[in-house]
């Protein structure tokens, strides 16, 4: 019984993945195909909010894939194709926002935090070092020497 359920489940999964493979495209050029795969994976579907257009069944995602396919065959570069989409659907569709005035903060905060952390770490380490190497007064020096001598002579 359990085995049969498992089989059923497996079959359902196969059916689902068959449905997800929505369109078959004919690429004469493997480089174009590679670029198509990369481009459609790098753009977010405007309707479904967190699926790439290569992963979405939404009609608009299918339209966008079709457009990417056409533009690739017109010989457009990757950045031209990305611009074509951003002009229509906005920066929203980019999974990797571009570096520009509006996104300096976005890209800058992680870098700034790493620099800050390094700075704090350096300060702490320096503080510790200074504390341990602080000059000893005569009395302390004498005690330290005595302790070391004691260790040396068993």
């Amino acid at each position: 019984m359990i085995r049969r359920l498992g089989l059923l489940l497996a079959l359902m999964l196969v059916a689902a993945s068959a449905l997800a493979a929505i369109d078959v495209r004919d690429f004469s050029d493997p480089v174009l195909e590679r670029r198509y795969v990369d481009l459609t994976a790098s753009m977010r579907c405007p309707l479904c909010e967190n699926q790439a257009i290569d992963d979405s069944n939404a009609p608009i995602a299918a339209d966008m894939r079709q457009r990417v396919f056409e533009l690739l065959h017109q010989g457009q570069s990757d950045s031209e194709i990305v611009n074509h989409m951003v002009e229509r659907f906005g920066e929203y569709i980019l999974y990797n926002p571009r570096l520009e005035n509006r996104t300096y903060l976005l890209w800058g905060i992680p870098v700034a935090l790493v620099v800050l952390a390094a700075l704090v770490l350096a300060l702490i380490v320096r503080g510790r070092r200074q504390a341990s190497a602080r000059a000893l007064n005569l009395e302390e020096r004498a005690r330290l020497d005595a302790l070391i001598d004691e260790e040396k002579t068993p």
Partner: peptide
């Protein structure tokens, strides 16, 4: 074919 809609950035 939705081509004007596409140029308008319409997604629904």
């Amino acid at each position: 074919d939705g081509s004007l809609g596409f140029d308008l950035g319409v997604y629904g």
